[in-house]
Simulated assay, not measured.
Amino acid sequence: MTGTTAVIVGAGAGLSAALARKLAERGHDVVLAARDTDKLGKLASETGARTVAMDASDPAAMRSLFVNLQGPLGVAIYNPSARLRGPIIDLDPERVRRAIEVTAYGAFLMGQQAARLMLQNEGDKKGTILFTGASAGVKGFAQSAPFAMGKFAQRGLAQSMARELHPKGIHVAWINIDGGISNAVRAERTDDGSDKMLDPGAIAQAYIGLIDQHRSAWSDELVLRPWVETF
């Protein structure tokens, strides 16, 4: 899949940046899509990536993103999610709708467009579609119903797509990021050297491992958690 286009939807600092760097190092033509692309200038310059400003939950915007890609699509990664906390009796229905649109509906839109392009690729392995999940897609936490609904839906989407598309040569997987991700630009996310938080580069390397998996042993789910995380 090296030399093909790699799309990261919901690009930003941390994991997305680590993914962009590793994909660029492998020779992919990287495309970074995000609602706010002003913050991506340095990363785009470093990786030679093209940036696209878009709302991931907008069908027309998602279609435009993929229709305008240059070269065959080899990798598509969906990172966006929306967290909305509060007692179930107090949650605003419209804000809940929006959270689910970002986390789940946008994932469907990307998966659909990516699959359409990858099915046109030649060869036995036509591409890889990855969805960044969370432990909320396995267990719903108190006062976090919207996030749980979105991540459960996203996980179900990935399972369905994997069963449909694996026999057609497209590898689909959902990654459960079970723990906090370290981020040097956020004080509360800075790791003290104890590796109690997930390192973005280590997560990105696991994604590369999924991309490189032989089709005789494809994973459709992967759980990543720091060594001190309880589960």
Rank of each mutant, 00 (worst) to 15 (best):
A142I: 14
F108Y: 15
E122C: 02
A134M: 10
D124I: 09
A136D: 11
E122R: 06
D90R: 04
K125P: 01
A134K: 10
R116Q: 15
R85V: 03
V96D: 00
R97Q: 08
Q143E: 15
A115Q: 14
A134I: 11
R83D: 12
V96G: 00
Y105S: 13
L130W: 00
L84S: 08
G127N: 03
S81A: 15
A99C: 07
A136Q: 14
F108H: 14
D90Y: 02
G86T: 01
Q113C: 07
P87M: 03
T103C: 04
D92Y: 06
K139N: 12
G140Y: 07
I88P: 00
N121K: 02
Q143T: 14
P93Y: 01
K125C: 04
M110R: 04
M118P: 01
P93F: 01
E122N: 08
A134T: 13
T103D: 07
R85H: 09
G137D: 06
Q143S: 14
M110K: 03
G137P: 08
F141W: 13
G86A: 02
I89H: 13
P80F: 05
V138G: 08
G127D: 07
T103P: 00
M110I: 04
S135H: 12
N79T: 06
T132V: 11
P87F: 03
A99F: 00
Q112E: 15
G86N: 10
P93Q: 06
S135L: 12
G127F: 04
I88R: 02
R83H: 10
M110F: 04
V96R: 00
A142C: 07
F131H: 08
G106W: 10
T128S: 07
N79M: 09
K139I: 09
I100N: 12
G133R: 03
S81E: 13
E101Y: 01
D124E: 15
L84V: 12
G133V: 04
N121L: 03
M118W: 06
R98M: 02
D92Q: 05
D92P: 04
S135V: 13
